[in-house]
Design a protein around this nucleic acid. Sequence first.
DNA 1: TATTGTTATACTCTATAACTATA
DNA 2: TATAGTTATAGAGTATAACAATA
Lengths: 141, 141
Amino acid sequence: MTQEPPPVPSGRIGYLLARAGGRAIRNLNRALEPYGLRSRHYTVLSASAEHGGLSQRELGLVLGADPSAVVALVDDLQRKGLVRRDPHPEDRRTRLVVVTEEGARTLAETRKLARGVDDELLADLGPAERRTLEELLLRLR
Amino acid sequence: MTQEPPPVPSGRIGYLLARAGGRAIRNLNRALEPYGLRSRHYTVLSASAEHGGLSQRELGLVLGADPSAVVALVDDLQRKGLVRRDPHPEDRRTRLVVVTEEGARTLAETRKLARGVDDELLADLGPAERRTLEELLLRLR
DNA sequence: TATTGTTATACTCTATAACTATA
DNA sequence: TATAGTTATAGAGTATAACAATA
């Protein structure tokens, strides 16, 4: 019976990122279950709110997801009354995803859950280390 | 037409991790295509080689995957002759996943690809920053 | 009783191609 | 011709439950 902790493949930053990221996503999914939402819904909601409305193409870029995947996510949020699809003032092809008042309320509540998941993930890091990590992550390609 | 780069939801380290990790995984999958392998196969190969043989249960912990998912991955690698399932000397339930000579050769080649994916991801970071990032990632829960 | 590996299965995610309406 | 959104669909990935062999 082996007792050692599982080893980690050397020189694989991508692997470490994906493993920790996957864990964070799974934890947030679990936390969002009572709302009938998943982490990607939260990201759509959060990104739309911060920008005051985003096209679905832009949301795809934020999520790193295919536009076809965005459609289903926005459908879900719209069905729950958390976002609207407004016409774009200049381009009639484009539809702006705008957070409703109820969406803003849900966002405020779920943001706490998202922060909680991050706090758990980063529990062993100090505030300065946490900032360093975030800064480095933002500079990845 | 909006010209700004897509914004990132604030205070979401888990999100940043998952996004960068997902990109790294996709890039490695693409690079491994000529070998008929995917990034999870590479991780199994790499972890087994470093430890000199791992049980499938341990591989599941390394991958952060269900044991049932490990079975299929090891099946694939065994079919290609890159790993063997050896009996465990002390526990007859357990089967040790051991890298074959051909597996070691494939690992040496694909390791270069994995390093290349990491290098691309980290192109904007200096060596010290890169070490810092890796160290912080290893301390995440 | 608990654990390792296995199978089957269902569900989610992701990726692709084709279509429409607009530009 | 190119782009935004949409639909349908196939393929990966993930999770769960049940089972046999072994502890």
